[in-house]
């Protein structure tokens, strides 16, 4: 999990009563995030590594790194796959 993650430029976040919805303006699709996903997205105002993100999550939600790492890896894979975030080596 080397490299850093950043937001796709054409994606905008909407706040729906505290829940985050991402709009990909290029594909005209929307994706709903849970609270953790919304936190990760909002953290990505600048490119961050997996380590940076995992540390922030662990602190924010007071969760052990083991659980955070597994969830975060899955989340980043999903969002990369659907083109909402990019990974750069």
């Amino acid at each position: 999990m080397s490299g850093s993650y950043s937001r796709h430029g054409a994606v905008e976040m909407l706040d729906m009563e505290g829940e985050a919805i991402l709009l990909n303006q290029e594909t005209f699709t929307v994706t709903k995030l849970n609270e953790t996903g919304g936190f990760v997205w909002q953290s990505l105002t600048e490119p961050l590594t997996f380590e940076d993100l995992a540390e922030r999550l662990s602190n924010e939600f007071r969760t052990g790194r083991e659980a955070v790492d597994a969830d975060l890896r899955h989340f980043l894979e999903q969002l990369t796959e659907i083109g909402l975030i990019r990974r750069e080596e």
């Binding site: 909407l14 729906m16 009563e17 829940e19 985050a20 919805i21 929307v30 709903k32």
Partner: peptide, 11 residues
């Protein structure tokens, strides 16, 4: 539906 669910369903 909550706002976010409604948004996804209608979009």
């Amino acid at each position: 539906l909550r706002g976010s669910e409604a948004m996804l369903a209608l979009f």
